[in-house]
């Protein structure tokens, strides 16, 4: 009887252990699959021509597989989104955390989480029909589907993560810091920007890194507004990101072209792992 019970408890324990390890298994599965399927093409093409080649002509007779345009586009696009999105998100968070009346804060926070919930294809759709023609008219370019359009869409899409994480960080700033500053004769606004914000800096850095992660990984919305041609990046050029390079050719690719797409995914994955490491670094800094 007792042995039976013990056996049963052990069984339950192992079942839960297995369930817990599923997560780890998934990560391993993804990593291994990406490496196994990503390496062959890099081997065939050569690491340097692959990473630093400036032309991607996967369907040409003498196909060339250089993904520098995609890498640069992803970096420029993400940087642009950060340059536009971070100041807006950051200032909004200071407003929400420090000066907004309670009711307004509630409403704006609801609106921000709504923004987080809107599917990326809806951003893409609205971008296609509002932003792309808008850019064409304002800047007098032939086609508005460009890096700029993608940057604007990405900047809007990363706002919620930036705002939520920064607000949490700013809320956690001890009141004593702010009181000390006020007692020295600083005004509330001066206090928020010169004491509260520096005190919350690691949280805000985390928010920025999260935003980078979201921007670099976004595929569908970008695909719908960026024009999707493998050019070297320029603000009004039609461009392809790492993500959209994978998505746009996957359905009809085969052979080396298909393998090269897996290699692109591997490069994207490495970028994401790098960002994760940065995130971990900032979170650790916050705890200390």
């Amino acid at each position: 009887m007792k042995d039976e019970k013990n056996f049963f408890e052990k069984l339950v324990h192992s079942i839960f252990l297995i369930l817990g390890l599923v997560t780890v298994g998934c990560v391993l599965l993804i990593t291994i699959y990406l490496i196994i399927s990503g390496i062959p093409a890099i081997k065939k093409i050569g690491l340097v021509p692959f990473l630093f080649g400036k032309t991607w002509e996967s369907t040409a007779e003498h196909a060339s597989y250089g993904i520098l345009p995609f890498i640069l586009t992803s970096i420029y696009g993400t940087a642009g989104a950060i340059v536009i999105g971070v100041p807006i998100g950051f200032l909004t968070s200071v407003y929400l955390s420090k000066t907004a009346p309670k009711r307004i804060r509630g409403i704006v926070e609801a609106v921000v989480s709504l923004l987080a919930g809107i599917p990326s294809v809806v951003f893409g759709l609205v971008g296609m029909l509002v932003l792309v023609p808008g850019i064409r008219k304002i800047f007098h370019v032939a086609d508005g589907a460009s890096l700029l359009a993608a940057i604007v869409v990405l900047a809007i899409m990363i706002l919620p993560s930036i705002i939520k994480v920064s607000v949490t960080a700013l809320d956690a700033v001890p009141e004593e810091y702010e009181n000390a500053s006020l007692a020295l004769g600083a005004t509330p606004i001066e206090t928020y920007f010169r004491v509260s914000v520096p005190a919350a800096k690691s949280g805000i850095a985390t928010a920025v890194v999260l935003g980078i992660g979201r921007a670099i990984g976004e595929a569908m919305a970008v695909m719908m507004v960026s024009g999707n041609v493998a050019n070297m990046p320029g603000l009004f050029q039609s461009v392809r990101f790492l993500t959209t390079a994978v998505a746009s050719e996957m359905s009809y690719s085969s052979g080396l072209q298909r393998q090269a797409l897996f290699s692109i995914a591997l490069v994207l994955f490495l970028f994401i792992m790098l960002i994760n490491a940065a995130l971990k670094f900032f979170l650790k800094g916050k705890k200390e």
């Binding site: 500053s181 007692a183 020295l184 004769g185 600083a186």
Partner: peptide
């Protein structure tokens, strides 16, 4: 201006999470 002339020291020591120098210079800079 009143708070500058009537300074305050709190129950719990509350230096800003900055360098010693910046802590002291904060008020004058402001």
């Amino acid at each position: 201006e009143l708070r500058r002339e009537v300074g305050m020291v709190f129950q719990k020591p509350n230096p800003f999470p900055m360098s010693i120098y910046d802590n002291i210079a904060y008020g004058p800079r402001t």
